[in-house]
Design a protein around this nucleic acid. Sequence first.
DNA 1: TATAGAATGACAGTATGTTGTCAATATGAA
DNA 2: TTCATATTGACAACATACTGTCATTCTATA
Lengths: 154, 154
Amino acid sequence: MKKPDRTDAGDAFALFSISVIRLAQHLTAAGDALAKPAGQSSARWQVLAAASHASMSVAEIGRVLGLARQGVQRIADILETEGLVRYEDNPAHQRAKLLVLTPEGQAILNDIQTRQAEWADALGAEIGETDLRTTTAILARILDELSKPKSPAR
Amino acid sequence: MKKPDRTDAGDAFALFSISVIRLAQHLTAAGDALAKPAGQSSARWQVLAAASHASMSVAEIGRVLGLARQGVQRIADILETEGLVRYEDNPAHQRAKLLVLTPEGQAILNDIQTRQAEWADALGAEIGETDLRTTTAILARILDELSKPKSPAR
DNA sequence: TATAGAATGACAGTATGTTGTCAATATGAA
DNA sequence: TTCATATTGACAACATACTGTCATTCTATA
């Protein structure tokens, strides 16, 4: 197998990419573990949190979370059958109902968020605020580069 | 909605987590875009790359990639029907056949890797090797903390 | 050597998320 | 106002990945 040519910086970027993806898998798994005691998952938690933040239509939540609206719709429908959210009439749009948390949904979200805060506090203290903020800033810069016209498909 | 208590470091960790997950989504999408011209996807590329690196059984590839062996099996079977990989008898294990690239599979992997190297070089140069290596080191440390006994499920 | 336990492939079921399509509804420009 | 265009929800098909279960095959210990 012949290794393609690659600069040192390119190599560094490849290693970085692998690290980011692997860490994201672990963080998502951790999110699932945080939501599980409440009978939820990362995905449902995200939808609950978005709906709690502001009454939005399913399509709006999709845009906020960076997901296709169809996937959000599926989860929102499940949350509705479980009584955690409710569709409310949208004065601004007849079809696009607003997703609103029920008291049960809010209680479950609070439960998850409390557990999450505890977890984040413990890990934040362990790792150190300085490194976290520095790294987050660099990640933001990289995300910016990735979003630029120079897409990988060229 | 009442925000749970949270330290500054905990807040920094929460923001960091969101950044990592979002960036990983973009990187995976970029990987799909790199593999697409060759008619492949990120997942298939990973399996091809693992098989190219060394002849391994499906279960071994799963462990290397951090995936369940069942998912790797599904992809490997598809790659086999497409003639990109071949199952070879494993002298050390009767059931666990070894996954080997066919010349067609190797050609497709080379094509993807060439495109990937170009892309990584460009982005690596843009972002800078120093920042990439610094960040990768911190990510590794965080991954380490996450893997420790103190799991989120407590 | 026997045998309990681990690893493996095969199969089924589920969760998350994507794309594509359709009809209904908003929106904005001529 | 009219009409082309966007957005939206609904539905279907698919890709990726997980868990659970089963029978088969290895492996290591007693």
